[in-house]
Design a protein around this nucleic acid. Sequence first.
DNA 1: CTATTGCTTACCATTATAGTAAACAATATC
DNA 2: GATATTGTTTACTATAATGGTAAGCAATAG
Lengths: 141, 141
Amino acid sequence: MMRINRRTDYAVRIMLALAEHPYGERLSTKTIRETMLVPKAFLERIVAELSKASLIKTYPGPNGGIMLFQTPETITVRQIWEAIEGPLLISDCLQTPEECPLHENCPMRSCWGKLQKVMLDELTAMTLSDLSLEVRKKQFI
Amino acid sequence: MMRINRRTDYAVRIMLALAEHPYGERLSTKTIRETMLVPKAFLERIVAELSKASLIKTYPGPNGGIMLFQTPETITVRQIWEAIEGPLLISDCLQTPEECPLHENCPMRSCWGKLQKVMLDELTAMTLSDLSLEVRKKQFI
DNA sequence: CTATTGCTTACCATTATAGTAAACAATATC
DNA sequence: GATATTGTTTACTATAATGGTAAGCAATAG
């Protein structure tokens, strides 16, 4: 039914929790999972993936925690998405057109290619700070 | 991994096969499934769904077949999509915000809401005749 | 040394997806 | 009206993706 991956949703939540605190501040994963309602075992893996993708820095040990690697203005939802799921590819047809049994003039490639493009554009346009602002706006109206 | 539903893909193929013939012409499902490479049993159900959604007219019996209900200019990919999958909903959060455990200022609703909007806009903008033209362009260049 | 924190691996249950098969219903034609 | 041809419907299966859990490992501040 073409749903957002829950792990990606959680990943954005985690990044947003960090973005809502001053840049450079560490938050423990416990705090984040409690405010953002992310299951523990799930969050652990997601944090590791965000760390591998260099979107966050992690600090084990007492008074450890995680923090953003860059400022929220420079982090896009697309980066978070790709850290979790890899590049968006809504149809195999778009990656390997030469393998398409309908060949050169496959009508689907145009159709899904356009759809994927607007999705990527939107994901690239949304930064963490944009989202963070949206949240605050709603909070104070 | 957020893939296009294969059934929706097949549905667009079927509609496109019809759109590439003069409006009003009937095609047998056999012809369509051979040119568009749609598995028989799959196609049967999809045709029935397209018929229920009043996107095609069907004629059983010898010399039967299917044809478009409207001209290709007036049929959007969104209509086809919704005939097969129902309305696009990439996150439950967007349908029932009141049930969201993160309440009013859920940061995800803004994020996924924007993404869903550009997707819907694009699906609505793409008509069958647009796609049909694209195919022909590629064929003759 | 130890408590606290993040990291890794393996696993499970449920659902969605892709596809198949077979019997059924309508109808043009002879 | 018999029959072949077409679309309709239902039930089923196998595989993969998703969402989630659990337990042990590794780093480190105090």
